[in-house]
């Protein structure tokens, strides 16, 4: 029953053979060893498993593996470049946005999608875009602060390092 699945994963072509009822989250974690993507609720209600599919944020626990066939996926592991961390990652560290950390990969991925789409997002817009990502530790205060700080950094570095849109 296994089918060939090809993904452009974090910029690299990957091939695996999986049953069609595997979710993208399972493929990433169990087949490809990318354990940064977490599964917390399994019903698309918490955002912990969020990844970018063709640049758009999706809950990978609700995407069947074949739905991702041939498509581009970005996970938390693909965010940093050899030159360094993504501004969001830096800001999450600097602003103490991290506690238990289980929700953080999904948070950062969603925040990236939010800022890619709306580089001038206001605090309210950020809160709205992020409202599907649950965190029980932080109360979101420092996470919001970190995203707003990263926004400024990203705006400055759009032309330079290639951290802006896409990837």
């Amino acid at each position: 029953m296994k089918q060939r699945l090809e993904l452009k994963l974090n910029g690299e072509m990957r091939e695996v053979f999986v049953e069609p009822w595997r979710t993208l989250a399972e493929v990433l974690r169990d087949e490809l060893g990318l354990l940064g993507t977490k599964v917390s609720c399994g019903t698309g209600d918490c955002g912990a498993c969020n990844v970018l599919l063709e640049g758009k944020v999706v809950s990978s626990c609700l995407v069947l593996a074949p739905q991702a066939q041939g498509r581009e996926i970005l996970t938390i592991e693909g965010l940093a470049t050899p030159e360094g961390l993504h501004p969001l990652q830096e800001a999450f560290i600097e602003h103490f946005a991290v506690q238990c950390g289980y929700c953080i990969p999904g948070m950062i991925i969603t925040a990236k999608a939010c800022l890619d789409e709306n580089p001038d997002a206001t605090e309210d817009e950020v809160r709205l875009a992020m409202s599907g990502n649950l965190c029980r530790c932080t109360g979101y205060v420092k996470v919001t602060e970190a995203i707003m700080a990263a926004k400024e950094k990203m705006k400055k570095s759009v032309s330079g390092t290639g951290y802006g849109k896409g990837r």
Partner: peptide
């Protein structure tokens, strides 16, 4: 409707 990650799918 739901969350952005849901709305995208």
């Amino acid at each position: 409707l739901a969350t952005i990650a849901i709305r995208n799918m």
